[in-house]
Nucleic acid binder design. Structure first.
Length: 429
DNA sequence: TCTGGGGTCCTAGGACCC
DNA sequence: TCTGGGGTCCTAGGACCC
């Protein structure tokens, strides 16, 4: 279809959550820092100093207490509001460099670069310009990988991060074949985008350990063992672009809201509060993307790590007679489902809801027996506007309770520096 | 004491139909 | 004694991602 070869860049922020915290608290520079998941449970972001200590992604915080004291690891609760805002700033800058941007996750984007080479001495210098401007305008360090396929751009980004000789930007196409083969021979297959723990182990068993060997394996052989997805990955490693940029994010097919509790929950009443709360969060997201939902799922379970406790886990799908985005109807359906699956006498650790069968609101099917009430849409709009202006959960249904004893704990939260007037950073003179 | 949350895609197998 | 074949749809589960 295209004659000019594609050029992809992957721009990825280094240790994103930790770097965001360091922007606003310079004392954290060069210190071992982790950012923890909800309830301060696991390490979800680690500074280089912490990675060097051998702390793995997702490692439980309570298990590292000894190491933390020994090395003075600083632990911070997640400050998602701050990270989301910083992410937006980075993505805005990236759009200045290329008209083709796919925001892939909160801290990384793919850019289409082909055609832009005439504006720059080389793709590497374009990458350096990106690095420099993001650093100067947001304070966040990023690395850039450049290659003819997305999968290779991911690997290039990995090299840019790990190999100092690249200076944070790696353009694979600028390497000679022997040099490239040398780098790929040093990379394990598990580093490849799409190769997880399971598949890496199976590849190992077939004698395919390095990326270089994987790249040399015929895609048909891979297909026989692993299916079409892995075949595509190997083709991409060989420089054949199979995955294009997704510049417009399609609406989500399902929306999930679930949380572990900050305290154990036994009563149905408290579970009802939590389920109601989660559903209101999910419903807001549903309206944000302009969809309606035809079925909701609700699930609860005990703490699987407490193996000596009696365990219970269950979920149920509740179909709706008419597709809706009305928080009140969605909450009612979820609570109805909860009553079906609730069993007394267990210590519950987590609950959640899922919105299923989503469809655009623009093609709403009018039901024979019920009509859409225009006042409902208006009510939901006012609800969303108030919460957007004054902070999440400013106004909510009474069923989600007031005390919310079960709410997740955040014992080390930093200020929401960029999105709350009362939490702005202060400069003392 | 203390172990995250939110997504996508693919496949296998069962139900059902003609 | 002998008991088809092919297609679709749905769901659960597995694998991956950040």
């Amino acid at each position: 279809m295209e004659n000019t070869p594609r050029v992809f860049a992957l721009v990825d922020c280094n240790n994103f959550y930790v770097s965001c915290e360091r922007v606003f608290n310079p004392k954290l520079a060069d210190k071992p820092v982790v950012v923890l998941s909800n309830n301060d449970g696991c390490a979800v972001a680690r500074s280089n100093e912490v990675k060097a200590l051998g702390v793995k992604m997702g490692a439980p915080w309570f298990q590292m207490q000894h190491l933390a004291r020994q090395h003075g690891i600083i632990a911070l609760s997640s400050n998602y509001t701050l990270y989301a805002d910083m992410s937006q700033r980075v993505m805005t800058i990236l759009r200045d460099f290329s008209p083709e941007v796919e925001v892939y996750s909160i801290d990384e984007s793919f850019l289409g670069l082909q055609g832009l080479s005439s504006l720059w001495p080389s793709y590497s210098e374009l990458g350096q310009a990106i690095r420099h401007r993001v650093g100067q305008w947001t304070g966040l360090p990023v690395c850039v990988g450049i290659a003819p396929t997305k999968t290779l751009a991911k690997l290039a980004n990995h090299l840019a991060k790990k190999r100092p000789e690249f200076g944070g930007v790696c353009d694979l196409a600028s390497l000679g074949e022997p040099q490239l083969a040398g780098y790929l021979a040093c990379l394990e297959v598990g580093e490849v985008w799409g190769v997880g723990r399971r598949i890496a182990a199976r590849l190992q068993a077939l004698g395919i350990g390095s990326v270089q060997v994987l790249r040399a394996t015929p895609p048909q052989v891979i297909r026989e063992h692993f299916g079409v997805v892995m075949e595509r990955t190997v083709s991409e490693l060989r420089g054949i672009s199979c995955l294009d940029l997704d510049e417009v994010t399609p609406p989500k097919q399902q929306i999930i809201a679930s949380r572990s509790f900050g305290a154990l929950v036994i009563s149905q009443e408290e579970l009802r509060e939590a389920v109601s709360r989660y559903m209101q969060t999910a419903a807001e997201k549903l309206r944000q993307q302009g969809s309606l939902c035809s079925a909701v799922q609700v699930f609860i379970h005990t703490n699987p790590f407490r193996t000596h406790d009696r365990q219970y886990s269950n979920g149920v799908v509740v179909p709706l007679t008419q597709a809706t985005d009305d928080s009140r109807r969605l909450v009612a359906a979820a609570l109805w489902g909860l009553a079906r699956i609730y069993r007394p006498g267990y210590c519950y650790k987590k609950a959640g809801v899922m919105l299923l069968d989503l469809a655009p609101a623009s093609v709403r099917q009018a039901s024979l027996f019920s009509q859409v009430n225009p006042r409902t849409a208006q009510l939901m709009r006012v609800l969303d506007e108030l919460n957007a202006a004054h902070g999440r959960n400013t106004i909510h249904l009474a069923s989600s309770g007031i005390q919310q004893r079960w709410a997740a704990r955040f014992d080390h939260r930093t200020p929401r520096y960029t999105t709350r007037w009362d939490e702005l950073p202060r400069v003392h003179t």
